[in-house]
Amino acid sequence: MRWILLTIVGCLAAAAPAYCQSSVDPSLAPLGISEDQTHFIRTDTGERFVVWGVNYDHNAAGELLDEYWIDRWDEVVEDFEEIRLLGANCVRIHLQLGKFLDSHDRANPAALDQLRKLLELAEQQGFYLDITGLACYHKANIPEWYDRQSEQERWRTQAFFWESVASVCRDSPAVFCYDLMNEPILAGKTPESEWLGGELDGKFFTQRLTLDMAGRSRQEVAGAWVSRMVDAIKKEDDRHLVTVGVIPWVFVFGGGKPLFYSPEVGARLDFVSVHFYPNQGEVAEALEALRAYDIGKPLVVEEMFPLKCSEDELVEFIEKSAEFIDGWISFYWGQPAEQLRQSPDASIAHAITASWLDRFHALAAEVSRDWEAPSQDE
């Protein structure tokens, strides 16, 4: 990290949690939403801001960020440098509840300190952070006491997590948003026995908000949970944006209406975040489903990758959605394209990822150029 001694001393000496402005990239300005609520702006100039980022959720070995960021900090710094060279302006990180809480009402000091360190790195590099919380991706990191909690106890614990995180992040210009939970789901018509959804490559990316609907509507449960989490964040930080990244069931089911971005649930969410992986030959269908989430708020495709379609089709999806989209976030797993190609165990997956990283880098300049919009006063 490119620190100078006086900056370090100044930061350590400060009694308040404010960040040292001398270490902040001058291009990093607090972000907000336009007066007409349709897009992001830099609050210092009013200029439109378009998100072009990556999910930095795990490394090539499958380790999650908060599992190695203390012992191998140099790896994080190197990865952020590589992400910067890709042309990204946003990094989505995923924080595991079990790594941040020692109990239902006691945060882990080392984890919070490392989060401060990551914020400072982002400030130096000029990145905005999409901070996704409450992750339970690795079962080994889920405390037994957390799994035993009732719904209301679990929500109370989740609210405390967000209070703790927001208290650290509130003064940093590097915070883009708080993403309440990755792909929350609800119970079915009959009670469930497990809080986590299905497993994917050893990880559990979805999590239930309740095990029993108990006669409540889906809107009632989702709306109550969103309000509880937003209240917890706003208690510590009323400056930064809040969202929740969802599975686009409208696309998965081929119709229907959004749940978390319905009027009953999404009123307190600042912008829409959806995860889209278009199917081969179905770009038009993906675009049609995506429009269902264009509800008069900024709209971000928070996850995308040529997983089920070709690279060209994903680019087509990006280009054709540009007229109503305010950002796209792909993935970076700690290995630049050249390293992936030269790997002794290079596979088809390596080749696909390397090719997409090259394309992502090329698109960065195009996105920046095409979205150099005038300020809202012009």
Rank of each mutant, 00 (worst) to 15 (best):
residue 152 Q to A: 13
residue 97 L to G: 12
residue 218 R to P: 06
residue 65 L to S: 11
residue 352 I to E: 06
residue 191 P to I: 05
residue 294 D to R: 09
residue 37 Q to Y: 08
residue 207 Q to K: 14
residue 324 F to C: 13
residue 309 C to Y: 00
residue 256 G to T: 10
residue 258 P to W: 12
residue 74 D to K: 14
residue 187 A to T: 01
residue 254 G to W: 05
residue 183 E to R: 00
residue 235 K to R: 14
residue 132 T to D: 14
residue 325 I to A: 14
residue 307 L to V: 11
residue 83 I to P: 00
residue 263 P to Q: 01
residue 286 A to C: 12
residue 334 G to N: 14
residue 236 E to S: 03
residue 77 V to H: 09
residue 321 S to R: 07
residue 277 Y to G: 04
residue 64 L to T: 09
residue 140 A to L: 05
residue 302 E to L: 04
residue 20 C to R: 09
residue 67 E to C: 14
residue 324 F to D: 06
residue 190 T to S: 15
residue 188 G to Y: 01
residue 3 W to N: 06
residue 359 R to K: 13
residue 257 K to C: 04
residue 376 Q to T: 11
residue 269 L to E: 05
residue 269 L to D: 07
residue 143 P to N: 14
residue 173 P to R: 03
residue 58 H to R: 12
residue 27 S to R: 14
residue 92 R to C: 10
residue 271 F to K: 02
residue 297 K to Y: 15
residue 144 E to I: 12
residue 111 A to P: 11
residue 52 W to R: 04
residue 270 D to E: 12
residue 135 A to I: 09
residue 172 S to E: 00
residue 138 H to V: 10
residue 313 E to R: 00
residue 272 V to C: 10
residue 180 L to S: 05
residue 115 L to M: 01
residue 139 K to I: 11
residue 3 W to K: 07
residue 127 F to L: 00
residue 44 D to T: 10
residue 15 A to C: 13
residue 355 S to R: 05
residue 291 R to M: 07
residue 149 Q to G: 15
residue 189 K to Y: 04
residue 367 V to A: 06
residue 97 L to K: 10
residue 212 D to K: 03
residue 183 E to S: 04
residue 146 Y to F: 13
residue 301 V to T: 13
residue 366 E to C: 00
residue 199 E to G: 07
residue 229 M to D: 04
residue 183 E to I: 05
residue 107 A to M: 13
residue 148 R to Y: 08
residue 251 F to Y: 15
residue 378 E to A: 03
residue 243 T to D: 04
residue 286 A to W: 01
residue 92 R to K: 14
residue 197 G to C: 12
residue 367 V to D: 04
residue 206 T to M: 04
residue 43 T to V: 06
residue 189 K to M: 04
residue 314 L to Y: 04
residue 134 L to V: 02
